[in-house]
Amino acid sequence: MAPLAATSRAGRAEWPGDQRQRPGASGELRDAAVVLVLVVGATRVVLGAHWFTDVLAGWLLGAA
């Protein structure tokens, strides 16, 4: 598994929900997913499991 796979998968899990959101539905679930993605990435860097550039690449790949 690539070092950035966990972060990119978390980012990809967030986007489909954003696109299929019901009209008038609150964005709380989307906001929670974005926060989760950012927290997971930050903890990977703080714990020394990945370099910041790996996490950044995962975020960008997940957002694509």
Rank of each mutant, 00 (worst) to 15 (best):
A32M: 08
G58M: 06
T43P: 14
L56H: 06
V55S: 07
L47T: 10
D54I: 02
P3Y: 00
A42R: 14
G58R: 04
R22V: 04
V37D: 00
P3E: 01
V34S: 06
H50P: 03
A42Q: 13
A2G: 00
L47K: 06
V45K: 01
V34F: 02
V37G: 04
F52Y: 07
R12G: 08
G17N: 11
W15H: 14
G24A: 04
G11C: 02
W51S: 13
A6I: 00
Q21Y: 08
F52R: 09
A63N: 02
A32W: 03
G41R: 06
A57M: 12
V55A: 06
V40F: 10
R20N: 07
L47Q: 13
A42H: 10
V37H: 08
A13E: 14
S26C: 09
A33R: 11
G58W: 01
V45E: 12
A2L: 02
T43N: 13
A13Q: 09
H50R: 12
L60F: 10
L56M: 08
G17M: 06
A13D: 14
R22H: 10
F52V: 11
G17H: 11
A49H: 07
G27W: 05
E14W: 04
L60A: 12
A6R: 14
A25D: 15
T43Q: 14
D54G: 03
R30M: 07
D54W: 03
L29A: 15
A64V: 10
G62C: 06
A10F: 01
P3N: 01
T7A: 02
T43H: 10
T7Q: 04
V35H: 14
A32T: 03
G27V: 05
V40W: 13
D54A: 05
T7I: 04
Q21P: 05
D54R: 03
L29H: 11
A5D: 12
G62Y: 01
E14N: 00
